[in-house]
Simulated assay, not measured.
Amino acid sequence: MTSMRVPLFTELGLYLVGSLMIYQLQTRYNNLTDERDQLQTRYNNLTRERDQLQTRYNNLTDERDQLQTRYNNLTRERDQLQTRYNNLTKEKGHIQANKINISQCVHLCSSTGQYCQEGWRYFDSSLYFLSTEKKTWEESRQDCLERGADLVIINSREEQTFVFNLHLRAWIGLTDSVTEGTWKWVDGTSLTTGYWSAGQPDDRGQEDCAEIYFSKDDPVTTWNDDKCGTNHNWICENVV
């Protein structure tokens, strides 16, 4: 049997076809590799953008929550201020009404020396209110303020004798609650002349508020320091 030999040009053609296919495959491989790298880059970029957006979202959420908190706080402060304003308006009305009542009885008190209306008494250009109940020093002062007055300030021996003769054990407008040992009147002035009982003030157990005793023999040695939370009668003064 005679063997058949592939012509040389046919072998060359096959070689060229194979080389072309390899080249095309390599080109496609390279292209796919480039596309993969580009897609990977785009994926990485999108991931970074997503993370940045998530961070911005979280930051905006935190800012929103902080603003909401500030808004709530401001709303509460506004409501508190409104309540304080309403209370002060009511107190102002009470004080004005009490001042009118006090002014109406000044003439009667100054001309007769008798007790004024609603527990007030007149002495040396001042009106004095004598309580019929007992309260702490702070509560007593608040009652005086609501009456358009304040706890009594004793400026002279004569006034001390007058207050003594009111026959009360009562709070007066003197305290060292701000600075221990520094006694000041409710108008902020420092005590210059005191009418303390012997051995007083002794500050036994934070006794920071002053009272006057009637049950002493000498009217000008009748003050005592006591705990401000103790309940006593009190005396208000309104200079007219």
Score class of each variant (00 low, 15 high):
2 T>Y: 05
2 T>M: 12
4 M>D: 09
5 R>Q: 10
10 T>P: 00
12 L>A: 12
16 L>F: 06
17 V>T: 13
18 G>P: 00
24 Q>I: 10
28 R>H: 02
29 Y>E: 05
30 N>T: 15
31 N>L: 09
31 N>I: 07
33 T>M: 10
36 R>L: 15
38 Q>G: 01
43 Y>V: 15
49 E>F: 08
49 E>L: 15
54 Q>H: 11
62 D>T: 06
63 E>Q: 15
65 D>W: 00
69 T>S: 14
72 N>M: 06
73 N>M: 12
74 L>G: 03
77 E>I: 14
78 R>P: 01
79 D>E: 13
79 D>N: 14
79 D>V: 07
82 Q>L: 14
82 Q>W: 08
83 T>G: 08
87 N>Y: 09
87 N>Q: 15
96 Q>W: 08
97 A>S: 13
101 N>D: 07
101 N>M: 10
103 S>Q: 15
107 H>T: 12
107 H>Y: 11
108 L>D: 14
109 C>V: 03
114 Q>D: 09
119 G>N: 15
120 W>Y: 13
120 W>V: 05
124 D>E: 15
125 S>A: 05
126 S>K: 05
126 S>T: 06
128 Y>H: 02
132 T>P: 01
135 K>M: 13
135 K>I: 01
137 W>A: 03
141 R>I: 01
142 Q>M: 03
143 D>C: 04
143 D>T: 09
144 C>A: 13
144 C>L: 07
145 L>W: 03
146 E>P: 00
147 R>Q: 11
148 G>A: 14
152 V>N: 01
159 E>N: 05
159 E>H: 05
160 Q>P: 03
161 T>F: 04
162 F>S: 06
164 F>S: 02
165 N>H: 13
173 G>F: 01
179 T>M: 09
183 W>D: 00
187 D>C: 02
194 G>S: 14
195 Y>C: 03
195 Y>F: 08
197 S>K: 13
200 Q>L: 03
202 D>P: 02
202 D>A: 03
208 D>A: 07
210 A>D: 00
215 S>F: 07
226 D>S: 12
227 K>W: 11
229 G>M: 07
230 T>Q: 04
231 N>E: 13
231 N>P: 00
234 W>K: 01
234 W>V: 00
236 C>Q: 05
237 E>Q: 07
237 E>G: 01
237 E>K: 12
240 V>L: 09
